[in-house]
Design a protein around this nucleic acid. Structure first.
Length: 501
RNA sequence: GAGCCGUUAGCUCAGACGGUUAGAGCAUCUGCCUUUUAAGCAGAGGGUCCCGGGUUCGAGUCCCGGACGGCUCACCA
C-alpha cells in the first residue's frame, strides 16, 4: 500500500501531463532573487508600490501554503530566503488557476508579478503568471517542527537543508570559513598546492589508511592520511610558503569528533619556527572569529571560549610533573620507572605494556598518554601545549636544549585538539633514523607507526630550508565557530552505514 | 569493539499492569472560503507498531537474536 500523499501527487503529475503541461520544463529564468526583491521594495510605501509597473520574476520552492478557494498565499524559497506570493483566480485566470490547484507544497515554480504590502505589512508578490518548474512527489517534513530525526537528517541532508534554515546557515558558514582560510594564506604569500590523494605510501601521520587498487597498473594505493610529506617536498622544490586545504582519510572509528574522511588544512613556512606559528595561529583564529562570529568570545557547548590573545602556553613535562607529582627532572629525562609508577596510579588503559609495543621509545609514548589522561580534557580555553617527546614526533625538529623532545605544539580548545605544529626536521640523516625507529615499532605491532618513504628522504637530501608547519582540523574549527556538538553537523554528508531503502 | 537508550501514519509525537477495532497535531483527500501566515470550518482516508524467532488464550507492550541510529567509552600519537 502506497503512502496516500505520494499517490495523490503522482495523480496530479499524470493529470498535468495529460493536459499537455510539461511538469519538468527548463524554460523559466528568474530575473530576481527574493533578497533582491526585498531590497528593492521592502521600504517602499504603498503609493509607490501601487504606481510601480515593473513586474518581478522569481523562482523557488513552495514551502508553505494557505488556501482560500479562489485565492491563495504561499511562501516561495530560493537560495537567498523566502518571499510571500499571493495568487488570485481573477488575476491569473481560470485556466492558470486550475493548474495552480495541481501544485503542492514542495513543488518548484516560477512566478512573475507585482509587489505589494498585505494588511499585516508583509511584502508580497501578487502573481500574474505562474508556472510549474518541477513537481515534487514526496511531501516536505512538517512545517512547524521541521525534520528532527537525526538519522534522516544525515542520510537525506537535502531534506534537512530544505526544512531547517539553521542547518543551511551552518553550511554557509563552513563555506565562508574555508574561503577565509584560503584568503588568509594567499594574502600572506603562501602558494596553494594540490598534492596526491592516492599515494603508494601513506605517510605524514600516525593512522591506518584506506586501501584501494589501480587496475591498469595492478597496484594497491592508499588514500592519504596527511599531505605533509608532499608539502615538504614542495619546500625543497622552492615554494617557501605553501598550504593545502583538502580531504584526508583515516581508517578509524566514527564518533561525534571523528569522520573517516575529514578536511585538513596544512601550511608550511620556511625560515620560521613553531613559536612563530603560535603567533600566526592566534592571528588566524581571531581573524576567523571576527569574520564569522563577529565576537572574539565564543559559546561552544556551554563553555565560553575566549580567543583574545595571548593564549596560555604550557609544556607537557610541566603539566604531567605538576598533576602527578613526578619530579620535573625525571620527566625531562624520560625516566621510565618514574613515569610507569605515575601511570599505575592513574590506572585504566595506561596499565598496558608500553615497552613491549614501543621498546626503548616506551617512555615517550607513556608521557604523551599521561598528558592526555590527566590534562587534555581540562584545556577548555585556548592553550598551546609544547615539548612533545621525540619518539611520538618522527617528523619534528629536535629541541636544542632537551634532545629527548621536539619543537612542537598542539593547540587545545574546548578539550579538543585543534591544531598540531612543529619546526620541521630537515636533517636527512636524523630523519632516516627516526623513520627506521618507526619501522621497528611497526614490526613490534604498532600498525599506526610511520612508513618508510625513500623518495621523501631523497628530497631532504637535496636540502630543505628550515621551516615550521602546522595542521588544523577544519571540521573541528567549523564546529567551534558554529557551536556544533557533533562533527556530523558540519559535514554535509557524514559517513553512515548502508541503509536499506 | 563494549555499555546504555531509541525505532509507532509522509512529518512531529502519545500509547499505565499484556486485553476488543493502535491515537493526536501537521500533511493528504472532499466541500465551503479573495489580505492569510502553525489561516479557519465540516467531513474522509492513511499503520509490516524496524526485522526474525519465542512466551502467552491474547504481544506495539514481556523474553531472545538481528538491523539501523543516538550518547558514553575504547580507538583516534
Amino acid at each position: 500500500m502506497e503512502g496516500d500523499e505520494r499517490e495523490a501527487r503522482r495523480q496530479k503529475l499524470a493529470a498535468l501531463r495529460d493536459s499537455g503541461v510539461n511538469p519538468y520544463p527548463n524554460d523559466f529564468q528568474p530575473r530576481h532573487t527574493t533578497a533582491e526583491i526585498k531590497q528593492l521594495f521592502e521600504g517602499a510605501d504603498d503609493v509607490a508600490l501601487e504606481s510601480n509597473t515593473e513586474t518581478v520574476e522569481l523562482a523557488g520552492r513552495i514551502m508553505s501554503q494557505r488556501d482560500f478557494g479562489k485565492a491563495s498565499f504561499l511562501h516561495l524559497m530560493d537560495r537567498t530566503g523566502q518571499l510571500q506570493i499571493y495568487v488570485k483566480r481573477n488575476v491569473i485566470g481560470d485556466d492558470a488557476f486550475g493548474l495552480f490547484k495541481q501544485m503542492d507544497r514542495g513543488d518548484i515554480i516560477g512566478v512573475s508579478g507585482k509587489p505589494f504590502h498585505t494588511k499585516t505589512g508583509e511584502l508580497t508578490i501578487e502573481a500574474n503568471r505562474l508556472s510549474l518548474l518541477g513537481k515534487a512527489l514526496r511531501p516536505l517534513p512538517e512545517k512547524w517542527h521541521g525534520l528532527t530525526d537525526v538519522e534522516a537528517r544525515y542520510r537525506q541532508r537535502y531534506v534537512d537543508t530544505l526544512a531547517n534554515e539553521e542547518v543551511r546557515e551552518v553550511f554557509h558558514k563552513r563555506a565562508r570559513i574555508i574561503q577565509a582560510l584560503r584568503r588568509f594564506f594567499v594574502e600572506r604569500g603562501y602558494f596553494e598546492a594540490e598534492t596526491p590523494i592516492m599515494q603508494s605510501i601513506a605517510g605524514g601521520a600516525a593512522a591506518r589508511p584506506f586501501v584501494t587498487h589501480h587496475n591498469a597498473l595492478d597496484m594497491d594505493l592508499y588514500l592519504r592520511i596527511a599531505p605533509e610529506l608532499y608539502l615538504k617536498r614542495l619546500l625543497v622544490g622552492g615554494f617557501d610558503r605553501v598550504f593545502e586545504i583538502g580531504r584526508v582519510f583515516r581508517n578509524e572509528g566514527v564518533s561525534t569528533r571523528h569522520n573517516p574522511e575529514f578536511t585538513l588544512l596544512e601550511f608550511y613556512q620556511a625560515y620560521a619556527t613553531y613559536r612563530d606559528l603560535m603567533d600566526l595561529t592566534e592571528e588566524l583564529f581571531v581573524h576567523l572569529a571576527d569574520e564569522i562570529v563577529e565576537n572574539r568570545v565564543l559559546r561552544w557547548e556551554g563553555h565560553e571560549i575566549d580567543l583574545r590573545p595571548p593564549w596560555r602556553r604550557v609544556s607537557i613535562p610541566e603539566l604531567v610533573s605538576e598533576r602527578l607529582s613526578v619530579p620535573i627532572d625525571a620527566v625531562l629525562d624520560l625516566d621510565h620507572k618514574a613515569l610507569r609508577a605515575a601511570a599505575d596510579r592513574v590506572g585504566g588503559p595506561l596499565r598496558q605494556d608500553y615497552v613491549q609495543k614501543y621498546g626503548d621509545a616506551a617512555a615517550g609514548y607513556l608521557l604523551l598518554d599521561l598528558f592526555e589522561a590527566v590534562a587534555e580534557p581540562e584545556l577548555v580555553q585556548p592553550t598551546f601545549v609544547e615539548r612533545y617527546p621525540v619518539a611520538v614526533s618522527p617528523l619534528a625538529r629536535r629541541n636544542a636544549e632537551h634532545p629527548n623532545f621536539v619543537d612542537r605544539f598542539e593547540l587545545f580548545i574546548g578539550g579538543r585538539e585543534m591544531a598540531n605544529a612543529f619546526s620541521e626536521l630537515n636533517d636527512p640523516e636524523d630523519q632516516r633514523q627516526r623513520l627506521e625507529a618507526q619501522l621497528r615499532h611497526r614490526d613490534a605491532g604498532d600498525d599506526e607507526a610511520h612508513a618508510m618513504d625513500e623518495d621523501f628522504l631523497r628530497a631532504l637530501e637535496h636540502g630543505m630550508p628550515p621551516a615550521a608547519g602546522e595542521g588544523i582540523g577544519v571540521d573541528r574549527l567549523v564546529m567551534m565557530l558554529t557551536d556544533s556538538a557533533s562533527i556530523r553537523d558540519v559535514i554535509l554528508f557524514p559517513h553512515m552505514r548502508v541503509e536499506k531503502i
